[in-house]
Amino acid sequence: MNSQIYGINSNISWKVLKDNVVAVNLDNGNYYTFNFTASLIWQYLDQNKTIAEIEQLINTQFPDTETVEKDVEEIISYWLPEKLISKK
């Protein structure tokens, strides 16, 4: 069980547009567009869910999807060096 919680960094401004998140790094002007699944994960992070809880929620929404755990950890490991999120 991964009980780690990640928070969205304070220099990131974001909004949900048509179910998809758009996030802007206010420090360097780079912006990011997320697909639906990534947007779900992002919003769960914003609700202070642990990684395990997020995986469970995604699995509930999309039953029998084998790759959820790996996919969530991959996207988290992409967001960390981009300084979109950090460990709490």
């Binding site: 002007g29 912006y31 990011y32 567009t33 997320f34 697909n35 699944t37 029998d64 996919d71």
Partner: peptide
């Protein structure tokens, strides 16, 4: 499997992806 229905919208699971756009 791999399909979610919410408020009449059916979604198929897609791998989470983020596209980065560089600032001008």
């Amino acid at each position: 499997s791999k399909i979610s229905e919410n408020a009449g919208v059916i979604r198929i699971y897609e791998k989470p992806e983020t596209k980065k756009h560089d600032a001008m």
